[in-house]
């Protein structure tokens, strides 16, 4: 046997990776600008956008942009995010998950149950952010809605944003925690070992010529 490098496994195609990073950057901008408008102690973050007024102007446009980009992403990966019976079993073993004992867990497909739940959470949050954001978008839309709804939307927007930010923190941490994951979104590939270890069922699919996006 020669010492040739094992073949890499393709996890994300280029368009998905580009889209992901568009969404990711948009999210960062939105989180920063949103937090600037949300909490006085973070108002200084608005300076990154050219001051408070520019922050107010840009935030909703970036939001709409991100919503569109995210919708494409969500559709692209949506099929693989359906919850299956084994996912619930996986979830019950969460202690093994955080303790890095995957071997004791049921096999995982393209996405594990945690990723799937995160997916749904993000979809929900973004939907809430988009709708409530339109209601509180003073320059164009707020006048169309009763004041009670505007007030509710402000709360919904704040709560959804908080949940989303927490979710994304988890998402980012997971990428740091599970080594070899980041490459999936940068180069689009993972090592066979990574796939074998974390997404065995998907690994098998790939070997059989399936498992594509």
């Amino acid at each position: 046997m020669s010492a040739r490098k094992p073949p890499e496994i393709v996890r994300y195609r280029t368009s998905t990776r580009i889209n992901h990073w568009i969404v990711a950057i948009s999210f960062v901008l939105l989180a920063l600008s949103g937090l600037a408008l949300f909490h006085p102690s973070l108002f200084w973050l608005g300076n990154l956008f050219g001051g408070g007024t520019w922050t107010r102007i840009l935030h909703p446009f970036i939001g709409v942009f991100m919503a569109v980009a995210f919708a494409l992403l969500a559709f692209a990966v949506g099929g693989a995010n359906r919850m299956e019976r084994r996912d619930w079993q996986w979830l019950r073993g969460w202690r093994d998950v955080v303790g890095n004992h995957e071997q004791d867990l049921p096999e995982v497909g393209r996405y594990n149950a945690g990723q799937k739940l995160l997916y749904f959470l993000i979809v929900l949050c973004l939907l809430a952010l988009l709708l409530s954001g339109i209601v509180i978008w003073r320059a164009y839309f707020s006048l169309l809605f009763p004041i009670g709804l505007v007030r509710l939307a402000a709360v919904v927007h704040a709560v959804a944003a908080t949940v989303l930010i927490c979710a994304i923190v988890v998402h980012v941490y997971a990428a740091i925690w599970v080594k070899g994951s980041v490459r999936a979104m940068t180069r689009g590939t993972v090592s066979p070992g990574w796939a074998w270890k974390h997404h065995h069922a998907w690994f098998r699919d790939v070997l059989r010529g399936g498992g594509r996006e």
Partner: peptide, 9 residues
């Protein structure tokens, strides 16, 4: 004022 309209809210 940054024009967000939160005062209206």
């Amino acid at each position: 004022c940054i024009g967000c309209g939160y005062c209206v809210t």
